[in-house]
Design a protein around this nucleic acid. Sequence first.
DNA 1: TAATTACATTTGTATATACAATTATTGTAA
DNA 2: TTACAATAATTGTATATACAAATGTAATTA
Lengths: 148, 148
Amino acid sequence: MNVEKIIKTKKEMSIETRTIIHLSLVNSKLNEAMTNALKPFDVSLQQFNVLRILRGQNGLPANLSTLNERMVTKMSNTTRLVDKLLLKGFANRKICPTNRRKIEISITQKGHESLKEMDKAMELAEAEVLVGFTHQDLEELNTLLDKF
Amino acid sequence: MNVEKIIKTKKEMSIETRTIIHLSLVNSKLNEAMTNALKPFDVSLQQFNVLRILRGQNGLPANLSTLNERMVTKMSNTTRLVDKLLLKGFANRKICPTNRRKIEISITQKGHESLKEMDKAMELAEAEVLVGFTHQDLEELNTLLDKF
DNA sequence: TAATTACATTTGTATATACAATTATTGTAA
DNA sequence: TTACAATAATTGTATATACAAATGTAATTA
């Protein structure tokens, strides 16, 4: 991926600006790949993300603020995102018996099964976008990203 | 930035998955920083991006498909994005005299002046998010990102 | 205990984005 | 020259997202 070629500029930019643009380009490529991988399942990346969090609860339900806290990219409307998962039968929602302000969200059997399929598709997509990287490269990249 | 701490997971994931999530987290941090830096100017990141492209044309107008080609993150509706720039007086739009299908977009004087201010704000924001990086780090990061 | 504050979620609204369909213009081939 | 295809932009529609305001519940305090 050559930044200058992609955004078609001849002007040279600072290494700082180039880094930011570079990351943005990579992210947009990744997003596209992941979104495509999830298309057959009719879920967005965010919805997939929430399903993974719910599974990570190991049977325990999660309330909305917990979900929001753990999402990779925060979005200000978890209610409506969960609505979509309910409609698809991937999640359940009930009022918390001990604190009626809270809502308990859990993943359904159907959600579990579909998530397993999604995982496979995502793994394939990951492998595809990371094909140019050695294990060493990935370690280095993660180390550098930690500096953010 | 510690991925596991941010998304609050104990489960360990493959280096591949970790990399993808890591990049997504970084991007979301960068987006927030850049969007905040632009808030005083009442432009979105995409609008800023288009203004930069228009300036890069050095007086030559750009048509919509050119803009779309050069945008960092493609979005399917450049018409409406440019509408916003017109409303703010940052850009002009006229029909191309040689090919009436095309629309010529150019940056106004006001656009130029505001863009100069935005540049300053963006430079500050960049420096802030990249504070943990040496020049060497940035070079290495760019080299790794090229592998995408 | 009544009033106030804090918490958790939902709703409203404006804007952003993705994608498909439509309009207008130009180019080309029968 | 008419018909058809290609190009360029716009519009419509559904969904996504950001942010503020509203709702309902629980905890605190005067």
